[in-house]
C-alpha cells in the first residue's frame, strides 16, 4: 500500500472534469488525465502511482497500468528535472537532427533515454513533434512546469550548444525558444 496522496489540485481537476463524461464512463475516461497530473506531482508513474490512481478512480490496477505503459509521455522511470527531447523524424533528419542529437549525447555523456549523473537532464530521441518546417526541433519539458511552452526550432550545433550551456546553468533558455 502506498502512503502517497493525490494533491488537492488533482482532486479539483477530477471534480471539474467528471461531469464532462457520462456518469458510467467518467472514472475510466479520467484515467489518462489523472495519470498525467499524477506524473506532474510525483515525477513519474511507478506502481505506487498506478495503485493510487486506480484506487481513487475505482478502476482495476491492471487497467491503469496497462494504460500507463502504452503512452510514451507517461514516464515509467524517473526523468531529470529537464527532459530534453530531440526530434529525429524525417523533416528533422534531413535537416541535420542526428548531428544535433549526437552533440547532446556527447556533451551530456548519456545515451538515448539517459539521465545525467546529477539527475538534472534526461535526453530522449522523440518522434515527430509537428513542427517539421522548422527542423531540427527540440522540446524541453520541465518537471514542475510541464505546460510551459518550450520549443526550440531551426537547431544547429551552435544553437544546441547555447541550449545545453543554459541547462548546465540550471535554467531553460526561453530566449532561444518560440
Amino acid at each position: 500500500m502506498t502512503t502517497k496522496q493525490l494533491s488537492p489540485e488533482i482532486e479539483a481537476h477530477i471534480q471539474q472534469l467528471w461531469p464532462r463524461f457520462p456518469p458510467d464512463n467518467a472514472a475510466k475516461a479520467l484515467c489518462i488525465p489523472v495519470l498525467y497530473l499524477a506524473q506532474q506531482q510525483f515525477g513519474m508513474v511507478d506502481d505506487d502511482v498506478v495503485d493510487l490512481v486506480a484506487e481513487r478512480l475505482g478502476l482495476p490496477a491492471a487497467h491503469v497500468k496497462g494504460t500507463a505503459t502504452f503512452y510514451t509521455m507517461l514516464n515509467k522511470k524517473p526523468v531529470g528535472r529537464y527532459h530534453l527531447q530531440i526530434c529525429t523524424n524525417i523533416g528533422c533528419q534531413i535537416t541535420g537532427a542526428y548531428e544535433v542529437f549526437d552533440r547532446c549525447k556527447k556533451r551530456l555523456g548519456v545515451g538515448n533515454h539517459g539521465t545525467t549523473e546529477d539527475g538534472t537532464i534526461t535526453l530522449s530521441e522523440v518522434e515527430c513533434l509537428a513542427a517539421c518546417g522548422f527542423g531540427p526541433v527540440a522540446q524541453i519539458a520541465e518537471r514542475a512546469k510541464p505546460d510551459i511552452p518550450l520549443y526550440f526550432e531551426n537547431l544547429d550545433l551552435e544553437r544546441i550548444d547555447a541550449i545545453l550551456d543554459a541547462l548546465a546553468e540550471g535554467r531553460v533558455p526561453t530566449e532561444l525558444g518560440s
Binding site: Y71, T72, M73, L74
Partner: peptide
C-alpha cells in the same frame, strides 16, 4: 453544448 479538451499522452 459542452466542449471538452482531452489530452493524449504520446501515441501516434
Amino acid at each position: 453544448l459542452d466542449i471538452t479538451i482531452y489530452r493524449g499522452a504520446g501515441a501516434y
